[in-house]
């Protein structure tokens, strides 16, 4: 059992569950701020998922120092985890902050228009 549960698997499970919880929040909540909280949890889940897909069992961080360079057969690629998903996630976190800030600014604008945050009250385009 314990050999089956590796760090990569745990990251995958947490990522999937956070995505489901965030998606549930986005679909069921009525308050706009709660919907944005759901989006932010969804974002965190996707980032955890991507980092755990790049995890290689028992390897260290992709920073070349003396210990890594002197590893098995002087081949760096034998002793580090995958750096590409990490670079992607780093970009995605910063963009995620920008999107959250944009959604919050829009929520503030909507609140100023109708003095409420209930999403069911915004039915101007409904017919």
């Amino acid at each position: 059992m314990m050999e089956y549960l590796e760090l990569g698997h745990i990251g995958l499970i947490i990522g999937f569950l956070l995505i489901l919880v965030g998606f549930w929040g986005v679909l069921t909540q009525k308050n706009i701020i709660k919907i944005i909280v759901g989006f932010s949890i969804l974002n965190t889940g996707i980032n955890i998922l991507m980092v755990s897909l790049g995890y290689v069992k028992g390897k260290t961080a992709p920073i070349i120092d003396a210990a890594v360079a002197q590893g098995e057969g002087h081949d760096v690629s034998q002793s580090i985890v995958d750096p590409v998903p990490q670079a992607l996630v780093l970009t995605a976190i910063v963009i995620g902050f920008g999107i959250t800030a944009l959604m919050l600014a829009y929520a503030m604008k909507l609140y100023n228009a109708k003095k409420t945050l209930e999403i069911n009250k915004f039915n101007d385009l409904k017919w």
């Binding site: 990569g8 698997h9 995890y55 290689v56 069992k57």
Partner: peptide
Amino acid sequence: TRTELTGMSHHFA
């Protein structure tokens, strides 16, 4: 779980 780097990642590393 992956045990080694492949493709592009291997080249970068």
